[in-house]
Design a protein around this nucleic acid. Structure first.
Lengths: 215, 215
DNA sequence: TCGACACTATCGATCGATCGATCGAACGTC
DNA sequence: GACGTTCGATCGATCGATCGATAGTGTCGA
């Protein structure tokens, strides 16, 4: 792993576990096995590093859902795909996703605006799928906007507790959450294994992970 | 409001919005309208202040669920009560709950152990209700533990976005979430208004809030 | 009624430590 | 000798925390 990669990995790990403000430049340097001065050869300010992690992580997620939902009009299929992708991404990359979800408040106003715009772009996929499903009468929810937020929070929570060392396989996790999401949306239909396998492949591809189960 | 109360309120506000590490002693002093030296007349260390906020907040929540679920054996009723209480607490006291949910990592090891023990005590109510419901065949979930975590994350998320200024009333919010939770648990039954009103009263009582709607 | 004393509340000044960030110099490699 | 990397030393700023001093307030014996 190159020094540049070590710096980024160190930042993801420490920002995710100790928070942006709780992580010092010297913590970063120690984790990356470099002097604090050398860090600045690979980054701008500490905030630049945070912004880079957030934007690339969100861009990857947006690319993944764009790729995985392309060509599908069925809201149920899209919803299953969105949930599976979101859960897989949060389980496989808990560091990045925890930083994105928890450290938005640490950004300065202009940087925060750019990150929030990306997040809104992502959540629009969820809003569209829910709206289309409600219009097609396959989803039944009295408060679509609230339900969307509830689903997103439920799925993002995975990054806070999932461990690949536990008994639960990634596929089982994603399948279970897709099932829960459809229940929330008032559409009690079993999850098809075929849809899920496609999501696993997209995640492995976009995040550049080995393809076998468990990443 | 006394100085002691202003210190605590300032800490809740700033810890919730800027994070524990992102909040300086001087920020706290300015928000509480005191000098930084005077702060230490009302608190121990900054971490003591954080621990006090977390433990009292969790104790109140535990007291509330103990009071509200006492005497009820029906897992469905208990689950509705747990969800409504949790959502109402997170919507009515977003500061405290955000601090509890997000700043656990900022604690030193011994303090964290005490807080996590309280959190586990609280979550046991959820685990019991889900287990009893599954045993009574009124809940249907393949992964009870995962479902519990998913539900908790879903409900806690309310503190991140709910605003009393929005169009959504507290009762509608709690009712909607109770409905979503029962769907997640495979028990599609409408929420009874009577159960909810009792939860509103318990929250108002335990958190010492005015009883009329909206707190 | 009055002063003496104790106690609470407050703050300006300041402590040593750590913060994010920068500098010039020294490496190696081509 | 040009360039990409690395680091020790150090900058001014800010951090959490403490100090002694100064008011205010209530109590109690004379």
């Amino acid at each position: 792993m190159s020094s540049a990669e070590r710096v980024r990995a160190a930042a993801v790990k420490l920002f995710a576990t100790k928070g942006f403000h709780g992580t010092g430049i010297r913590d970063l340097a120690q984790e990356a096995e470099l002097s604090s001065a050398t860090l600045y050869h690979y980054m701008g300010t500490k905030e630049d590093l945070l912004v880079e992690i957030m934007t690339t992580s969100l861009r990857r997620l947006i690319d993944a859902v764009a790729k995985a939902t392309a060509g599908s009009d069925d809201p149920v299929v899209r919803m299953r795909t969105l949930v599976a992708l979101h859960v897989l991404a949060h389980a496989a990359q808990p560091g990045e996703t925890r930083v994105v979800d928890n450290e938005v408040d640490a950004l300065s106003a202009p940087a925060r605006a750019r990150v929030v715009a990306l997040r809104d772009e992502y959540e629009q996929y969820w809003a569209d799928a829910i709206e289309d499903g409600a219009a097609a009468n396959v989803f039944h929810t009295a408060q679509p906007a609230v339900t969307r937020l509830a689903l997103l929070e439920m799925c993002s929570g995975v990054a806070r507790w999932y461990s690949p060392k536990g008994p639960l396989k990634l596929e089982d996790l994603a399948t279970h959450y897709a099932e829960l999401a459809l229940r929330v949306l008032g559409h009690p239909v079993a999850v098809r294994a075929r849809d899920l396998r496609q999501c696993l492949e997209v995640v492995a591809q976009v995040w550049d992970l080995p393809v076998q189960e468990g990443f």
